[in-house]
């Protein structure tokens, strides 16, 4: 068990390159348990790479990552991590229900049927439960993907643009769902309204380096006059570049 304030995610001096392209350059940060962070940055800044490293899909070239004290690829870390990539696609030949049951079974969820029924109702997927995922609309695919990321009640949730493609009522439902989770969260997004509603703190990455780390309130405090928060973020990213 972890207690509030203890570090759930520790990233120390991590570097990751793809060939000659440096995606992350000597990045370090810590996320205490129970806190919610936004991961901000321009396109190609290294946000998705950061999330993939945290979830153990990639291995850092140098540096260390600990998830609740464990290596990201360890069974202990996998059991508490929930991950939603950007433009996620579930198994296209399976139906909605089959996807939910399959992933719940892979994750060793105790009551697969109960978890499946809950998400079918919570995300209004009931009418599509037998539908082939390859034929679903993008919005319904996104709803299913969110359900798949959360089906095992993860204690650490990593989400990459979770509200993409969702209609406004569903966005509100997902907001409520994420807010109600008793978990540590990192939400990568370009949309500041999502960051401000879902998180209290932010890490800003640009060109593979952390350029700012602090609370959303501090970020708002950097506004000049009537300047919106988006302009503050843009300024910080531009100055860093």
């Amino acid at each position: 068990m972890t207690s509030f304030g203890q570090a759930c995610i520790e990233v120390q001096f991590v570097t990751k390159s793809y060939g000659k392209t440096v995606a992350l350059d000597d990045v370090s940060f810590t996320i205490p348990c129970g806190e919610r962070f936004a991961l901000l940055g321009p396109n190609g800044a290294g946000k998705s790479t950061t999330l993939r490293l945290l979830v153990g899909l990639l291995k850092p070239d140098t540096g260390t990552i600990k998830i609740n004290g464990h290596e990201p690829f360890s069974p202990e870390a996998k059991s508490i991590l929930g991950y939603l990539p950007e433009d996620a696609t579930p198994y296209r030949t399976l139906s909605v229900r089959e996807n939910l049951e399959y992933i719940a079974a892979l994750r060793g969820v105790g009551d697969v049927r109960e978890a499946t029924e809950r998400f079918l109702d919570d995300l209004s997927l009931r009418e599509y439960e037998r539908a082939k995922v390859g034929k679903l609309s993008r919005g319904n695919v996104q709803k299913l993907s969110i359900a798949l990321a959360l089906i095992h009640k993860p204690r650490i949730v990593l989400l990459d643009e979770p509200l993409n493609y969702l209609d406004i009522p569903t966005q509100e439902r997902v907001f409520k769902m994420l807010k109600s989770l008793d978990s540590t969260q990192i939400v990568s997004t370009h949309i500041m309204s999502i960051a401000t509603r879902l998180t209290e703190k932010a890490i800003m990455i640009s060109r593979g380096k952390i350029v700012w780390n602090g609370t959303i309130d501090t970020l708002k405090g950097l506004e000049r006059g009537e300047e919106p928060i988006e302009s503050v973020v843009a300024r910080l990213m531009t100055n860093a570049g």
Partner: peptide, 25 residues
């Protein structure tokens, strides 16, 4: 075409261990 095609018969993975789920799929 946006219409969803529905499977008449679906698989169930309820009560399966992780490895059994892979094989049943």
């Amino acid at each position: 075409r946006a219409t969803s095609s529905q499977y008449k018969r679906t698989m169930s993975f309820s009560g399966r261990s992780p490895v059994r789920a892979i094989y049943s799929y």
